[in-house]
Design a binder for these strands. Structure first.
Lengths: 237, 237
DNA sequence: GCAAAAGTGTTCCAGGTACACCCATGC
DNA sequence: GCATGGGTGTACCTGGAACACTTTTGC
């Protein structure tokens, strides 16, 4: 058998891994896939970059495959690139002699979509981030997830990304819960109201109300920017 | 002729590019190399990642080759990874069929070291960032430089990276000039004093004085953290 | 009425900005 | 002395934190 590609240089496989967050049951969740083959265990969803595909496009494709969401409808930010020589030893032996460099991406979904049993019949499930960080992930995905959580917490401060966790119209109490879950601490409801209402480019009122059962009905809001645009990219492509 | 490496997958070449900043003549400078071969023009210093080398190690090696500074003595932060399929077309033709993915890094030097005429006899020179951004760079290096400047400006706010632009002991006026040059605006000298003195983890007094000719002599300070440690990495490896 | 959740008002404090002012040197 | 740059004091403003209080619903 012959190999269609040949090189005078060592082979690098380039992959993308996606850290996909959502909120459910009052805690931050991450989509992970169960690996049957060695190394067995849980891992982040990801895959090879196609020959003529931009890095961002590869991440969008992975995201769409896992969630069924149309590419371009979710926020997607480049996190970092991980390429220690021994981070994935699966292809080190002949004939590939390849090491794997992975570009990690960060995204947010407004709800727990049922993971698609896609072309690769992946067994993707949502799990609480806290549990996953405790039990670990294969490869260096534990580190990637840690970095992703830190980035998400930081970006909540100065981008409207929190709105990407919510679908359609939402109350400020629901938005506040996003911040509380991601930051792991409670916020003052009154101060939160003012801050979000006054801030430009986060939410705008719809004029409609919704009652949550008991208590005064809440005003409803929608995001000022599309979910896919909550992050202004600095680097990618 | 045979090629030692073969693959069933398309070939990716993985490189590192380094955006190296310094301050001279009252403006922000960047180290660029002149390319003789096509595409001719100015480019960022960079090169291939070696087979058994971590990405960070490759960036440190490039940095050391260009500056002569010992690896590990300079701050080095991963910026982003750039991998558009057409960003470097030099190897697209047979037999390589390779595209190039580049991991960009950001560093700061305390002075204009004479660029080393290293093994590759590179013709590296320092040039003002403003000029370079105006005239452009080859490949997508213009975009990388823009992203790097934005990152540097942001990090100045909440990391002690400004001290990495200065060698040995320095006055607060010298440190203030770093901020003024990078941010492109003047700062109030009095307020700057207080803020930097009060802030933890930026500078500590040496107790010595230095006269700049006229006026009251200035107290001298040294960085609280080593230049190589001014950035706490979130992602790399 | 009472409980609960939404939303507003008010007070306090920390940190930034503007700018007046004093200090220590060279000439 | 005067000019020059280093360094301090102070008044003002803004934005966040704490928390009392009012509004609007279900029961």
């Amino acid at each position: 058998m012959t190999h269609p590609y040949a090189s005078d240089y060592p082979i690098f496989y380039v992959t993308v891994d996606v850290v996909l967050f959502a909120i459910a049951d009052g805690s931050l969740q991450v989509l992970v896939v169960e690996r049957g083959e060695e190394p067995a265990g849980w891992a982040l969803p990801g895959g090879f970059v196609n020959p003529d595909e931009d890095l961002r496009d590869a991440a969008e494709r992975e995201l769409a495959e896992e969630t069924g969401v149309r590419p371009g409808d979710l926020p997607l930010e480049q996190l970092a690139t991980y390429g220690a020589p021994d981070r994935d030893t699966r292809y080190l032996k002949p004939p590939a002699h390849a090491r794997v460099v992975s570009v990690a991406w960060l995204s947010v979904l407004p709800e727990l979509v049922q993971p698609q049993a896609g072309t690769d019949a992946s067994s993707a499930v949502w799990r609480p981030v806290a549990e996953v960080l405790e039990e670990g992930l294969t490869f260096d995905h534990h580190r990637i997830l840690r970095d992703a959580v830190a980035r998400l917490q930081a970006k909540l401060d100065y981008t409207p990304v929190a709105t990407a966790f919510l679908a359609g119209e939402f109350s400020l109490a629901e938005l506040r819960e996003v911040y509380e879950v991601v930051w792991g601490r409670e916020l003052d409801p009154g101060n939160f109201q003012r801050k979000v209402r006054v801030a430009d480019r986060i939410v705008e009122p719809t004029g409609r109300l919704r009652s949550s059962g008991r208590g005064r009905p809440a005003e409803l809001f929608r995001p000022t920017v599309r979910a896919a645009d909550v992050w202004r990219e600095t680097g990618s492509g």
